[in-house]
Structure formats: structure tokens, C-alpha cells
Amino acid sequence: MNELLDLYWTFARIGAVTFGGGYAMLPILERELVDKRHWTTMDDLRDYFSIGQCTPGIIALNVSTFIGEKRRGVRGALAATVGFLTFPIIIILLIALFLTNFAQLEIVQHAFAGIRVCVCVLILQAVLRLWKKSVVDPFTLGLYLAVFALNAFSGLVLPFKIPTAVLVILAGAVGVLVSGRKNRGARKEGEGK
């Protein structure tokens, strides 16, 4: 029981100081979980992150679930995950309560118009950061361009907009097909020699 509370509170504290999403979380996790508490190793943490990056859901949450599960099974996973969610939910609810009264003010609207510009840049930078690991060859570049075009413009050209979920499933399927053919090609080449 004590360890469950410990898991909950540790991840609640981590959730309270993690700004900017999963990628900003790694150094904090390293300090809290590897150096201070020895709950996991740096290698395991990297693996959790790389799996979290390619499975559905929020990366930081996936990592919390992984470490909770490793410590105390399913109950540990739930304690860590709910812990991680606690402060972000409370803080956003407070802001939402507060902002409904102020969102109409002219000064607030000017501030948000300025902030939106910053958000464009932050998204662009996130794309640039992820680019290297994701767009690695002509096939992945083509897939990037195709999905971008379909996601951004399919509603303009076609009578309907292709749902995002359909694009995700198609991209995964195409990835399996193309990498499978590549692997077979590589094996044949190896046999030829």
C-alpha cells in the first residue's frame, strides 16, 4: 500500500513540473527515477520512451504506466498514471474556470493572438526535432508528403475529408508492406553472395 502511495505521489510531483510534454520529461525522470530512487535504469527508460513514441497515447503517460507496472503490476501502473494526471487536470480546470470570465477581454484576445504566433513556431520546431528519426529515406519522405497532403487538403479536393484514424492505420499497413519487402530483398542479396 505504501509503495502504491509512493508511486502515486512521485508521479504526481513529476507531472506538476513537466512543461512542454513528453520530450521535456526525460531529464526529470532520469534524475527522479534512476539517480534518486533506483526504480529503473537509464537503458530501460530509453526503451520505454522509444516504445511510448510509437504506441498510441501520450508519451509521458506511457512511460508512467510502464514504470508503475514494473514496480507493482497493474495497480502500480494505475497509481503512477493517475498520479501523473492529477496536477495537470487540476491546473487546467482552474485556468479554464478563470479564463471563461476573461477570454472576452480585448487585452486577453491580443495576448492570445500573439501567443498563437509562438505556437506556430513551437509546432514547426517539434516537427524539425522529430524529422531526423522519422523521415529516413525516400519512402518515408514520400509517405510524409502524401499523409500531409491528404490530411491538410483532402477536404478541398474530394467531396469528403479522409479521417485521421484511417490515415494512421493505412500508414502502419504501408510501413509493414514496404519494410517486409526490403527485408526479403536484403535476405536474397545475402543468399546470392
Partner: peptide, 30 residues
């Protein structure tokens, strides 16, 4: 290797969709 292959396709697709989302914000902001 099936899972590996799926991620090979999912990674570029996911940043393509983030780019499209950025374009949506830019339409309002810029």
C-alpha cells in the same frame, strides 16, 4: 519485424499530421 515495419510507416505519418495541424494554426495566426 511486423511491429517494426508498422512504426517505420507510422513515424513519418505522425509528423505529417503534426505539420498539417501547424498549418491550421498558421492560417489563424499568420
Amino acid at each position: 519485424s511486423l511491429v517494426e515495419g508498422a512504426f517505420y510507416g507510422l513515424r513519418p505519418a505522425s509528423i505529417a499530421m503534426i505539420t498539417a495541424a501547424g498549418l491550421n494554426v498558421a492560417k489563424v495566426a499568420l
